[in-house]
């Protein structure tokens, strides 16, 4: 649904949204990557499993929670893209990782 304009803003940073490569301009956010990748949802709510995409893009609404580089529930609109970043939707409540125990 969002399209880029490489003539105005060259896309130079490659990230992976659910494994698919997406190129973005420097300074764009992980939430922008998800919108540009065209995912149907960046998260499914932990309450009712409703699909959501980013709403405010400025750190207010927390509807852009996603798993970024393996860390669950990060506010994707506040995380600038970095080369090789892996972004995946947050599906429902996160799993706490017991193996992180040691």
């Amino acid at each position: 649904m969002f399209v880029q304009r490489p003539e105005a803003r060259p896309a130079t940073v490659e990230v992976f949204v659910e494994g698919l490569p997406v190129l973005l301009p420097e300074g764009a956010s992980a939430a922008a990557a998800v919108l540009l990748a065209g995912l149907p949802a960046i998260r499914e709510t932990p309450v009712k499993g409703s699909p959501r995409l980013p709403y405010c893009m400025m750190g207010i609404c927390f509807d852009c929670l996603a798993e970024i580089d393996g860390v669950a529930n990060r506010q994707a609109c506040m995380v600038p893209v970095a080369p090789g970043m892996r972004i995946a939707p947050q599906r429902g409540a996160r799993h706490a990782r017991l193996e992180a125990e040691v």
């Binding site: 803003r9 540009l36 709403y55 405010c56 893009m57």
Partner: peptide, 21 residues
């Protein structure tokens, strides 16, 4: 999904040069 703040779309334009298709 697909409903967002107008300001949010403007931030996408400012930060990524992206616009709704």
């Amino acid at each position: 999904p697909g409903v967002m703040g107008a300001g949010a779309a403007q931030i996408l334009l400012k930060t990524a040069g992206a616009v709704p298709g």
